[in-house]
């Protein structure tokens, strides 16, 4: 059967205290809105749960970098990577860290998302969006987040000052890389123009407990 998750609002207050300092300087409206979001976003699960981390690894004039997970994964995670330059990536992966190798020296970022199942109770705030988009001629497409209808993502980024992690997957034999990541969107790039679609995921993960 499917594993359903249920909310646990009582535990939200712990998290709200933790991040209180982060949004003291925001508007009253934003504070109230965030309070509501945190109350609605905190989850616990019954049975199977996911252990998730995401981030952006900075690379300076190098062909490799190391991702150190905040918490050791119970099982070797599935690791998804998207670079900010047109390079191939490979990785040596463990439960506590991952060494990422690029096909060439570059300066930029590597967006990463690691996840797997866990048997322990963990709580996260996760704000995400994703869809399938058609690539355009030239192999580069600007994605603009729909902040009008779903403004919470923008608030989350502004208040907590978190840049979203962007993961891309093509439906064609090309490399994909991401540039111009802001709170409003990003640019998805392909190593060569193609006719077809690509999948994108924008995600922010904050572990609570």
């Amino acid at each position: 059967m499917a594993i359903s998750l249920r909310t646990s609002p009582n535990k939200v207050y712990t998290d709200r205290d933790k991040i209180k300092v982060s949004y003291l300087n925001t508007s009253i409206h934003a504070k109230q809105s965030l309070k509501r979001d945190f109350e609605s976003l905190t989850l616990t699960s019954v049975g199977t749960e996911a252990q998730i981390e995401s981030g952006i690894l900075s690379v300076v004039a190098s062909d490799q970098g190391t991702i150190v997970f905040n918490t050791t994964f119970e099982r070797i995670p599935k690791l998804l990577l998207t670079p900010s330059e047109n390079v191939n990536l490979s990785v040596t992966l463990g439960t506590a860290s991952a060494i990422v190798y690029a096909s060439g020296v570059f300066t930029g970022n590597i967006h990463w998302l690691a996840l797997n199942e866990t048997t322990t109770t963990q709580q996260y705030i996760i704000v995400a969006s994703g869809t399938k988009e058609a690539m355009v001629a030239g192999g580069s497409k600007t994605i603009t987040f729909d902040l009008t209808h779903q403004p919470k993502f923008e608030e989350f980024i502004n208040v907590l000052n978190i840049t979203p992690t962007i993961i891309l997957m093509p439906e064609a034999n090309v490399n994909m890389y991401v540039t111009n990541v802001t709170k409003n969107g990003f640019v998805a790039n392909a190593s060569a123009p193609y006719t077809g679609n690509f999948h994108w995921l924008a995600i922010v993960v904050k572990r609570i407990t």
Partner: peptide
């Protein structure tokens, strides 16, 4: 998909 949902898992 709807953009920018409150990302409940």
């Amino acid at each position: 998909f709807k953009n920018y949902t409150k990302g409940k898992i």
